[in-house]
Design a protein around this nucleic acid. Sequence first.
DNA 1: TTGTAGGCGTTATCAG
DNA 2: CTGATAACGCCTACAA
Lengths: 356, 356
Amino acid sequence: MSESRTQDLSDSSAEARKPVRSGKSSATIYDIAKLAGVNPSTVSRALSKPGRVSAKTQKLIEDAAAQLEYRVNPFARALPTGRTNTLALIVADITNPTFFGIIRGAESTATARDYTLMLAESAESADTELTAARRMLTTVDGLILASPRMDDARIRELAQEKPVVVINRQVDGVPSVVPDVNKGIGEAVRNLAANGHRKVAYVAGPLQSWMTTRRWEGVKAACEWSHLECVQLPSHKPTVDGGRQVARDVVASGATAVMTYNDLLAIGLMQELQAAGVQVPDRISIVGFDDIFGADFTTPALTTIRSPMTACGTEAATLLLEVLHGAEEVSPALQVETELVLRGSSGRLLAADHPA
Amino acid sequence: MSESRTQDLSDSSAEARKPVRSGKSSATIYDIAKLAGVNPSTVSRALSKPGRVSAKTQKLIEDAAAQLEYRVNPFARALPTGRTNTLALIVADITNPTFFGIIRGAESTATARDYTLMLAESAESADTELTAARRMLTTVDGLILASPRMDDARIRELAQEKPVVVINRQVDGVPSVVPDVNKGIGEAVRNLAANGHRKVAYVAGPLQSWMTTRRWEGVKAACEWSHLECVQLPSHKPTVDGGRQVARDVVASGATAVMTYNDLLAIGLMQELQAAGVQVPDRISIVGFDDIFGADFTTPALTTIRSPMTACGTEAATLLLEVLHGAEEVSPALQVETELVLRGSSGRLLAADHPA
DNA sequence: TTGTAGGCGTTATCAG
DNA sequence: CTGATAACGCCTACAA
């Protein structure tokens, strides 16, 4: 009847004042040790790396732990070891469905390997991004940057403190996962050529975006190969609205087929063209990029180059976990495939100069 | 020259083996104390609650901290205090755009108040949800459950250990944020009635969903008020596919207007009806729920009852932070407004029995 | 206002 | 194989 364990504190009137910490604090390895009649350090061994303790004591300890509903205190563990079983993911824009897949992929593989995911958004700002990265870096084992907006130097700086993996970008010395755009673009351009198109416009994304350049280069190369003329058009923002705004330029360009930096632009563009009475795909074919959620809601459904974002998230998390678990050399730039998803917004050209 | 502190271990050749922990470990309050010529505890005070230290030493310490690029070790802090400046959010389905808004709202308000967000998905499984909740609960200060699938008892259990806020559901004794469906539903039903509809079908969501019941009750009540007949139709899954599958039942029901549990169902339903040659909205009007991303991509664009998910996320996080910061009594059930967003998928009935 | 000392729960190092 | 014991970095009475 001494003051051994905090048992029936429900009655002690003076207690129960603290607003926080309402439930009883959970058991520690000391409690287990006491119950099992061994030393706390033995408990620690038994519970972390099994095998370093006799089978008998092992069971003894496990039983005690179960009885006490013991759960490790992650902070106490993190203090000496520095490891937290936590990954951070920073995305450029949470509202952009492109990132949904990345989040999902990263979250599921993290969870599957008993890690948990911390999420932050940069809101397309390099500063916000860096702040978030720094804030989370102290807490996590590793960091995934999806379409980062900060410059290479900063990213390398971060990568020096903790393992970092970037998605949708390549940074020297930092492992990355990037879609290989060329396959999908090649398929798309060949399809357009086969359908009688002779001039392609590429609607670009934000200038800080590493990806918009890669995609433009891919389009340009593929067009040359297929002997198509091609031209780049800047956009205001990589959103549906941005797509609407660029419609006028598209028409003015004289191109009969448009490829866009992303699906949002493609959808806005299509809406605006249709509103202006320009038939899609009869007068102008549209090919988006990413195959986001909702790309098939439009009429006609959007032809697009699918970029497997979920796979990117999965691969990035896997890569990061490998590094964390001591893999010395990891492939610096993992490629995932892209593919053309042919739907209704692209097709045979039925323009005036092309009599049926 | 005693064995005071672990200082220059950088040269000990045997070291430097550890693959992890590549960068130099960061400065501690002891380093700051030494540099500023004060006691570590003074540093602690100066850096946590300002004002408890003389202005002079304060500045001294802050300068030293800056010079050393000091950053607190969250684990070391969490160990004695128990606080981590971290919130957890568990959503039922990451791929469901309904939750994007919630995630965004929660993330942004957390970040704004210098908390960071941990994210997990239950994949619509009560078990997974509980596991994730338990796992994260040890690490975070509080928990947000968006459309939880586990039963009330479990939720209350969790709420006993750490503050919990639920979204899209009400649980006795646990603060919650729920959209007040009645306003939006009322607007929708009145609009349908005014457009000549006499019979409304409600396509339900998953049985475990608290919300589907609330919405059905709302629809039923509103229909009674407007003297409309109404009928409930079960759905297989609350997805686009589920919507397609229910199309046949909808037609068979004889209803001329359909309200669905969510937009996904509405979109699938519309696709299938159109494919079957049923004009929307001329023959059948469709009203969705949520106003998710992409709801206006369809042709016709989807009429829907907007449920402000971002606001839910924001409010939930705010609520949780208030509790965390010692607010004694918080409103147990915070309501956010819903509203009808009138677009093209609903309108005047032009059915056969209703000659123009 | 500032310094002292003990503790938070685990891991790791050494003896036994 | 197991038991002591010292970190880990910070917080917080309590004392000066």
